[in-house]
Design a protein around this nucleic acid. Structure first.
Lengths: 217, 217
DNA sequence: ACGCAAATTTGCGCGCACGCAGTTTTCTCC
DNA sequence: GGAGAAAACTGCGTGCGCGCAAATTTGCGT
């Protein structure tokens, strides 16, 4: 399951992808993101510029991917892991809070870089959309096979709420930084996520109850 | 309110925008969308290619705009119009169903064009995002000043649900057309919209009740 | 070990989005 | 009505995303 496709091929592909990620982030930190051409990244990773675009469809994606990599799989796993013993709403919300507050892995300099430049901020926010499909499957798993649209709509709503939280968080971050602060006020992100997800609780609860009723019928 | 800014300027701007829309749609229908260059559209509208990009940030946007124009304002107005005498959920849902099923204005040939080409389909679906902000304000108007995030999250969720409905509708459309049918099976769009929006009813109801309680306190 | 099939990489070319700076048009105020 | 300010239009240059087809690499059966 970890290596579905044949070995050496997929292995090399992941290595190339990782090399591109790393090169993009390193160069962006060294020179500032505006002084990094796609050709530079490709050269640093040892592939042709055309190959770069086989992996990332925009220049910002590669830089941001160094931070957001694999998040979608982790979110889905986290929801599935909390499946038993808690309500759907709590499972989803706490899984997301966990994954997004633990995202400080790549270091504060990278975070500062991304939160500062508008183009990178947008790309960063856009990566949120990637969690929609895994989240759909995780929720559908819990709801069973009732209305096929419900899981998708709920997952999309949760995704949209997360996007809003990130937008607001980044907005506040910029204000803080330009006001003379140092780094990101990441302390409030968890609360912010919980706040934006709260209005969706009734919808999650209702879907869960409906599924339970449907199952016991 | 209809013309906030001074007259002749804004008037000419709208005229140019409309000319670009019309030219884009006409040329796309005449030659097929792949044989229309941005320069052609600009020339047909009597402006420079550079000006074209001051109005539309992608080639597909202009073509699709001929169909989706002004929808965001109409949706907001429709929600506000239904404000009195019905619940928030019904007001939002029926307003959206109305606006999206009445969208057959530009004729079936344009619809067929858009639903056929993948790039145009994507652009069409993306226009849905434009209703988010007007919808936020319309919902916030009804909810009063409670939690500032609630209206945004609900509007974003509704928007996401609409996007899902459109994706599914376009998917079905393609199947129908390639199977030998003639035009779009628009009959089911209303039902589809109601189906995807149904899971959000509990969230809309809860927000409304909460606002009512907050107001009567 | 070898060769065929499939997947990946690469070079090339095209059109496009957009920043920038200069020009032209429109607005405002006297 | 005329002068100065503001806004919109335009030409130019740059980098980028991606389709296409040839070349290279990898997988697999024998």
């Amino acid at each position: 399951m970890t290596a579905r496709r044949t070995g050496l091929r997929e292995q090399k592909k992941q290595a190339t992808r990782e090399a591109l990620r790393a090169a993009a982030l390193r160069l962006a930190l060294e020179r500032g993101p505006d002084n990094v051409r796609v050709d530079d990244i490709a050269e640093a990773a040892g592939v042709s510029p055309r190959t770069y675009n086989n992996y990332f469809s925009s220049r910002e994606q590669a830089i941001v991917a160094a931070v957001t990599s694999e998040r979608e799989a982790r979110v889905a796993a986290a929801v599935a892991g909390r499946s038993d013993g808690a309500g759907l709403a709590d499972a989803v919300i706490e899984a997301i809070v966990d994954q997004y507050t633990a995202a400080a892995a790549p270091g504060p300099d990278a975070l500062l870089l991304i939160t500062t430049r508008p183009a990178l901020r947008d790309a960063f926010v856009d990566t949120t959309a990637a969690i929609e499909h895994p989240l759909t499957e995780a929720i559908a798993e819990r709801l069973g096979d009732g209305d096929p649209h419900t899981a998708r709509v709920l997952a999309a709503s949760v995704t949209a709420a997360v996007r809003i939280a990130l937008e607001r968080w980044l907005h506040a971050t910029v204000s803080t930084v330009t006001a003379g602060g140092l780094v990101v006020p990441s302390g409030s992100l968890a609360d912010l996520l919980r706040a934006v997800l709260a209005p969706l609780r009734p919808a999650l609860d209702a879907a869960e109850h409906r599924a339970r009723r449907h199952r016991e019928r």
